[in-house]
Amino acid sequence: MKREIVRYVQNYGENIVEEWMDEMRERGDSRSFNTISNNVFYNTSKEFLDVVVSSIVDSDETYHEKVKDFAESIIKLGWPLTYLTTGIRIYQSIIFEKMVTENELTKEQMKKLVLDLDSWLSPLQDQMINIYSDTWEKTITMQKVALQELSAPLIPVFEKISIMPLVGTIDTERARLIMENLLSGVVKHRSEVVLIDITGVPVVDTMVAHHIIQAAEAVRLVGSKCMLVGIRPEIAQTIVNLGIDLNHITTKSTLRKGIAQALAYTNREIVVMEGAD
């Protein structure tokens, strides 16, 4: 019966694709499918069924590579894991119904067909789920690393002057990253003055202040000066109420004032040219 299944799939692949796509549209995750064009949906569906057929006609190495590439493509599309599980279940149902309808099978033959389809597609589904999960974890890890790198950048704005704009909450892990980026950036850019801009930090509590003080002290130890800018009135009040001592750190209410002070530290200043608006 397995040979008959393979032969049937190879002979009627296009018809199966069309019916399968209709079923997936009706029973699949419409939120995922409605956001893409019909052409993308068709090509992705065709690729999925090519991967399924690959499991019985190609070598293990070729099949595994196709599954990996396909998993990456549907993750990029934002499609859930249920796309794979639902897709295989619908595919199995379509093949069974068509073969039973077209081949007047006995009960014993139908039973064998069910077992053969299951022995083919169940391991295939498990493999796809595992590869999808591994690919998803790797994608999430890479995205997390990229976000971490972007969450605490040190930007050189003038010669010897760099700025680290902070946005969002600061936890222990991010504080560690801030410290690493700050120290490596100071050395890399040969910064004499570093401005830590906390305009986008919603809350400054004792822990956040402690991390900022540690960062400022670390910058001082490598021979540079650290300034804290973007201190809003409510943040200033919180710092006072918590009894946090920032006397040994230069602070400014805005980034503009901080840059002016940083230029002064490096014996420069902003001059308005005659005739300029």
Rank of each mutant, 00 (worst) to 15 (best):
Q92C: 13
S191I: 03
I170E: 01
E61G: 05
A215M: 04
V201Q: 02
E18L: 03
I239S: 05
I140S: 05
K66N: 15
N130Y: 11
Q143I: 12
I163P: 00
T251L: 03
S73E: 12
K144T: 14
K252P: 03
T85D: 09
S184G: 00
E217C: 03
I5W: 04
F41A: 10
I155E: 03
K76E: 14
D205T: 10
I196G: 01
S184P: 00
D50C: 08
L124C: 10
F48C: 06
M273D: 10
M1V: 12
A262V: 04
E108R: 14
K46I: 07
I75W: 08
Y8A: 05
T169H: 03
S119N: 14
E137D: 12
I36V: 13
S55N: 09
I129H: 04
S59C: 09
K66S: 13
E104A: 12
A236F: 04
I196L: 10
M110T: 15
T106A: 11
V100L: 09
D22Y: 00
D171G: 01
N267G: 07
P153K: 12
V272H: 02
S133N: 12
K76Y: 12
E47G: 04
I16E: 03
V219L: 06
E102K: 14
V194A: 00
Q92E: 15
M21E: 04
L121R: 09
D58K: 13
I129G: 07
S253C: 12
N130S: 15
I16G: 01
P165K: 07
D58I: 11
E19K: 11
E159Q: 10
F158L: 13
A264Y: 10
S151H: 12
M21V: 02
E180I: 00
G275I: 07
V219C: 07
V52W: 00
K144H: 06
G200I: 08
T254K: 08
I196M: 11
M142A: 14
M128I: 15
F70Q: 09
G200W: 06
Y265Q: 14
E61A: 12
P156H: 09
R232K: 13
L246N: 08
H210Q: 14
Q143M: 13
E217Y: 10
R31Y: 01
G87K: 08
T101G: 04
K76V: 13
T62E: 13
Q148G: 15
T199M: 07
A218G: 09
D134Q: 13
K160L: 02
K257S: 11
L221Q: 08
Q10P: 00
L121Q: 08
